[in-house]
Nucleic acid binder design. Structure first.
Lengths: 209, 209
DNA sequence: GCCGGCATACCACGATCGTGGTAGCCTTAC
DNA sequence: GTAAGGCTACCACGATCGTGGTATGCCGGC
């Protein structure tokens, strides 16, 4: 197949071994061409500008910034960019953020290569690719109210072990207001107390440590 | 180089892409030979029995059991097994457990391939390989008292959002005793409250969600 | 313009947590 | 066999948390 007809691919991952694994998978496909690789978000943006690949495989966790942020940066410049998030496994919050930010696919590194390749072709053809196990994760918490920006800020403070009183000082609000936020957080996450709220938020990828 | 003289290697990782990346790295080395691969702990044990490799590269997180448990199982049968843990990144607790259980090396997937290969040769030669960044993690909490088995059990219950009263019922002890354990946990981890204790324990790999 | 959601604030009360001290029992180590 | 560490238990008290209700100002959507 001529290089012009092939699916031109950019991979972004900070693990050299993983990059090599992806590269090997793509090299084995006659209809695909690996045009560039990047190890972090900034590199991803630069490589994208240089090569404008048909499909980009982006790791969610990167050293300098989130892969989702890198995707947002790329898509603000190239709105038609077809980007597939590739991750070991995150909670539904990461998936939601990625799709909301315009990801065309969300695949797991634990999936068999055949699945991944099919996903790349699917996305290249202009369709989306959300495998069943990912969709299930997403469906799990569909319809539930999302945390507001303020609640998220409070939750991060709670996760740091701060008391309501301290959180109030840090956010320049009263302790009573903090309590209201904490109460809402626990309601939305279905937690019995603040500790479980933090555990659930971590498991779902709503916050990171 | 003859196959007999080569370093015979077994890789264990549940991500096909990562396995492929490792395989590619090893194949590029004249003095190494990839004799088998496994995707989970049980497979690792079976492959080890069949091939008795010189060096085993073992992922810490596996679908069926911890890579450390798999290593313990292998080493109970083959005490001389030279096993290198390979992980994306975990806290010091994982590193400690792995080394205590007899791992000969602890390497990160983010390390350049040259480092990994050097580590494999080092371990094959009978030495240990703990890269500086891993050693630093380990040193960070050296000398600090480790949690006891009971404290660990209580901590897991705390992370699940249980109240002291409920934990007492679940562990068949009194609430007062639970309080003592929680107090000790917070002291040892340097946490201001139970929530921070859970956050710290998760970050350090002492517990998982 | 009105409504709903969000963030803010205050009050009061019961539940839960964290701290201090004391102490018995058991196992392991020296 | 004695010491040390770990697990258990009880008491008391102050700090903090979680819950209920009420209320104000703001903003974006219908």
């Amino acid at each position: 197949m001529s290089d012009q007809a092939r699916i031109r691919i950019l991979t972004v991952d900070d693990h050299p071994l993983m990059r090599e694994g992806i590269a090997a998978m793509i090299r084995s496909q006659a209809d695909m061409l690996l045009v560039a690789q990047a190890a972090d978000g900034d590199g991803a943006i630069q490589r994208f500008r240089e090569h404008q690949p048909d499909v980009t495989l982006m790791d969610v966790r990167l050293p300098d910034r989130s892969g989702i942020d890198a995707m947002i940066a790329i898509r603000s410049e190239f709105p038609e960019a077809r980007i597939v998030m590739l991750t070991t496994f995150e909670g539904d919050a990461e998936i939601q953020r990625a799709l909301r930010a315009g990801a065309r696919g969300y695949m797991l590194k634990s999936m068999p290569p055949g699945e991944l390749l099919a996903g790349i072709r699917e996305v290249h053809a202009g369709r989306k690719r959300i495998p069943p196990e990912v969709a299930a994760q997403l469906a799990e918490h569909m319809g539930e109210e999302a945390l507001t920006a303020r609640e998220l800020g409070v939750l991060k403070e709670v996760a740091a072990g701060n008391r309501n009183r301290d959180i109030a000082d840090r956010l320049f609000i009263t302790e009573e207001t903090v309590k209201v936020h904490v109460k809402h957080i626990m309601e939305k996450l279905g937690a019995k107390d603040r500790t479980e709220a933090v555990a659930i938020a971590l498991r779902r990828g709503i916050i990171q440590l």
